[in-house]
């Protein structure tokens, strides 16, 4: 089984970080993983994306044209990636920063007002972790305990005081699926 996800947003929204957390968790669970960032003359506030694969077997191409899941953190990312999603795939949208819903009817759409939810937690910058929580809840690609361990290991020591906030954001995103 191979799970692929494209995560896209503004530079600074932490899309590369949540991609790294998924890849790291997959590695902790003994799976093959790849993390491939978009790379260009990017600027702060520009668009940015990452392709993450978690697989039970050796990974061939790390470049995926039609993934089974896409997480978009803003409207430009929705516009750019909506068509790339495989039919029947899951599209997670940060509805706080998108003023439209997808037009496609052959996909599952999960809209989470991640920036608003993060704001309620006291820091809008954890919107990425809220979306990650939603993705974990919807796909169970890795277990929550593994993700919590990954958080611990990926965050440098001097950022460990932010761990409780990030864990909370993860849980808020997960529980939003069942009780929005």
């Amino acid at each position: 089984m191979q799970r692929e996800v494209i995560i896209a947003g503004f530079g600074g929204q932490g899309v590369l970080l949540i991609g790294q957390l998924i890849a790291y968790s997959g590695m902790l669970e003994g799976k093959a993983v790849t993390w491939l960032p978009s790379y260009g003359p990017e600027i702060r506030g520009g668009t940015c994306h990452v392709i993450v694969i978690v697989s039970d077997r050796r990974i061939g191409s790390p470049y995926v044209t039609q993934p089974a899941a896409i997480i978009v953190m803003n409207r430009p990312s929705l516009d750019k990636f909506e068509d790339r999603l495989n039919s029947g795939g899951i599209l997670l949208i940060n509805s706080s920063l998108t003023d439209r819903l997808p037009e496609r009817k052959d996909i599952r759409v999960i809209a989470i007002p991640a920036t608003d939810l993060a704001h309620k937690l006291g820091n809008s910058r954890v919107a990425n972790l809220v979306m990650l929580g939603g993705y974990l809840g919807a796909t169970e690609v890795v277990g929550l305990p593994t993700m919590l361990q990954a958080l611990q290991e990926v965050f440098p020591e001097d950022k460990h005081h932010l761990l409780p906030l990030n864990k909370k954001a993860l849980e808020v995103g997960m529980s939003y699926l069942t009780e929005p």
């Binding site: 790294q20 890849a23 590695m27 993983v33 790849t34 491939l36 790379y39 790390p62 470049y63």
Partner: peptide, 10 residues
């Protein structure tokens, strides 16, 4: 390759 310079893998 450029992408091998950027990719992360265990």
């Amino acid at each position: 390759d450029g992408i091998l310079g950027q990719i992360m893998e265990p």
